[in-house]
Write a protein that binds this DNA or RNA. Structure first.
Lengths: 225, 225
DNA sequence: CGCGGCGTTGATCTCTGTCAATACTTGTGG
DNA sequence: CCACAAGTATTGACAGAGATCAACGCCGCG
């Protein structure tokens, strides 16, 4: 439960409200592939990923799935939709075995009215999500497939220069979808990154020099916060 | 000022707080092309478009502009960024002569603490913006240029069937950017919509049968709210 | 050992971006 | 009132990126 308390939302809430909110078995284990909620369901709760990976995607009429976001330990999702009390505009599904905490919307709403400071934290979460979506749009509109992959890899790496090795956190097909391309294109584009010092073995990616990859990706300034 | 009061945010605020907040000449006229704020500026206010059109875009290192959203009369923008008190992650610019109300962040923050209900309205606005961004991502990832244009046109039309005529609200190059394509592609793709009953004259678009266009666009269900 | 899921590779085709030339509109000044 | 310039839109030719379809390889598992 320590990870729960670490989420900014719960820090602000204070231990007593938190505990009252996440009492009885609200935390559940989902198998890989299991749905957490479905596009169109009434949005009466939101979620905190305690462990594992979750994909949030839109289902299109033509049967295609479009991944909008992917969450992992410590991240909350669907708060804003829940707050509106409407319906979920997307579907959430575990892409690995995942432990997920469900938080009741009505309870949170009451908490916010009691402690307005909480609203700021909700907005902080919304802000973060907005920023990520904007970033994604920017990437889709202005960057080639190899550049988007480079950005994705760089997001996984703390360092700003030197060598690094990373394990791809989930299936390549999912990464491809997240990045807005076909699995085949992902494979080819990743191979093309060999020129800038990226080599692949199974699900392990070795970057010879992070700085070089940053230069290649032409990332725009991370001039926020 | 009636349009100000109509914005959900101010409805909830009540007339007295509203008036105290938007007192002295906070409303300003911007010329076409004038910046309202710039990416990286301290985000100490947010804005309500009273009249005209505003584009919100990211400036990339390579000089490209990526339009993230476009706002018009009655819509607020940058609330969430403001609330975080950080810096604007994008630039806002008037694309037509525009009358815009600037609202002080600190004042709003105080108002929220006084009247927690306001927080819900902030979250509502955030929710709307999030939903739009998600929709945009879906379109970019899963739809061809003509389909994206079809969706754009359909957003301008209230009807669900029958004929319609619409005036494009701003320059085609801007629409093209918003839809993630080059002006040339926009021109060609729009021409290709002739097959589904769309004809263009200057900035006027005639749709012979809206239902047919909906079918073509393969829009996913608008299953929200 | 054989099967199924996942990933890669190859061939081909379509769409979109790019570069360049050409209208069309609008506003300005003679 | 006309000529011209600047901004905006369209059209053409071409190249490249990525999608699609198909085949194959790899690996884990029953």
């Amino acid at each position: 439960m320590t990870i729960v308390m670490r989420a900014p939302l719960f820090q602000a809430m204070g231990p007593e409200i938190t505990r009252s909110m996440i009492q009885n078995r609200a935390c559940r284990l989902y198998e890989r592939g299991e749905r957490i909620f479905q596009q169109g369901d009434p949005a009466d709760s939101f979620f905190l990923t305690v462990e594992g990976w979750v994909k949030l995607y839109r289902q299109r009429e033509d049967g295609d799935e479009v991944v909008v976001a992917i969450f992992t330990a410590g991240e909350t999702f669907a708060e804003v939709a829940m707050f509106m009390g409407g319906r979920f505009p997307a579907t959430a599904e575990a892409v690995s075995p995942a432990r997920i905490l469900r938080i009741d919307g009505a309870a949170l709403r009451r908490a916010v009215l009691q402690k307005p400071q909480l609203a700021f934290d909700m907005l902080a979460a919304a802000s973060l999500h907005l920023k990520r979506l904007v970033q994604q749009i920017e990437q889709l509109k202005a960057q080639s497939a190899p550049q988007r992959i480079a950005d994705f890899l760089l997001d996984q790496v703390p360092a700003e220069a030197g060598p690094a090795t990373i394990a791809l956190p989930y299936e390549k097909a999912l990464i491809a979808n997240r990045l807005g391309m076909q699995p085949e294109s992902f494979s080819r584009a990743l191979a093309r990154l060999r020129d800038v010092g990226v080599t692949v073995d199974r699900d392990h990616v070795r970057i010879r020099d992070v700085a070089k990859l940053i230069e290649f990706s032409a990332r725009s300034n991370e001039d926020d916060r």
